[in-house]
Design a protein around this nucleic acid. Structure first.
Lengths: 152, 152
DNA sequence: TTTTTTGCAAAACCTTTGCAGTTGG
DNA sequence: CCAACTGCAAAGGTTTTGCAAAAAA
């Protein structure tokens, strides 16, 4: 039951409803965590989510953030990615697959769709039998800005 | 000054010599750490390196392993990769670039050369200006064995 | 009321740092 | 000899766990 393509607010409402429908209770903490993750365009660390949530509900604890993210991953509404020498980054389960590009020099993260990656994933499948999932890890490199401004 | 293509033992000797030539001292710990990394075909955690080294020199400390790996990375003889929910994996600086394939189900790690990745890195460069470095991160997916034996 | 969820504190895990003592060159 | 290196112990940063109190249904 993958999340279907919807406008952000509609998706959020649907997710809240589905979480409840699965028998989980809807606490203010949980709702705010979900809202934060679903309204953010980018990728957030647990710490960033906590910070955002605390602006609206002061007493929330980092443990609660982790526990909710874990639960939301289990039921498929949230994913995390390993972007390098940083804490894990969390984001809503994507409606379209994408890959992360992380700049080795400035740390900027950009996303690309999987389209340019499909030929290579087919080649890898043919050569090795390994089926690449293009959504979880990052590709390291040098972003345009750093490439054009710096040497080497 | 990248490491050139040589037989493993010859590479090891050359690296030992070059480390010395750069003014670093050659302690038994350092030598054993280098030997362990260079003789292993795969990728090792700091803990695994420690274990291997201790078989031949009991008193070695994990701190020493980390410090030597850090030094060896600085001078370009060792690299590390983020392979997922595991500690960092260390390996000799590769004579040819490669990418890691990590199986989401069984955890097996395989390598592929960069050849099948070149078209995509060109596409990404054209589309976004981002220059992908194909050696540091892993691609997650499902290996042939798990794909053929399991469902979904 | 009953089960889930929370907050706090503490632990776990991997990695780094400070320091005093040891050792390679 | 003396700078580089090591081991130990302790700290750092991120994530997980145990447990009693609080809150949802």
């Amino acid at each position: 039951m993958p999340v279907t393509q919807r406008a952000p607010e509609e998706t959020l409402k649907a997710v809240l409803a589905e979480v409840r429908a699965r028998g989980y209770r809807m606490t203010p903490q949980r709702q705010l965590i979900l809202e934060t993750v679903y309204r953010s365009r980018g990728h957030l660390t647990a710490e960033a989510i906590l910070k955002a949530v605390r602006k609206r509900f002061a007493g929330v604890n980092i443990t609660t953030v982790y526990r909710n993210l874990e639960m939301l991953e289990e039921i498929g509404y949230v994913c995390h990615a390993h972007l390098g020498h940083t804490p894990n980054m969390y984001h809503p389960t994507e409606r379209r697959e994408h890959q992360h590009l992380v700049c080795r020099r400035c740390g900027a993260v950009e996303e690309i769709g999987v389209k340019p990656l499909i030929p290579m994933s087919k080649a890898v499948l043919n050569e090795t039998g390994f089926e690449v999932d293009l959504t979880h890890f990052a590709l390291l490199g040098t972003c345009r800005h750093c490439r054009e401004s710096g040497a080497g």
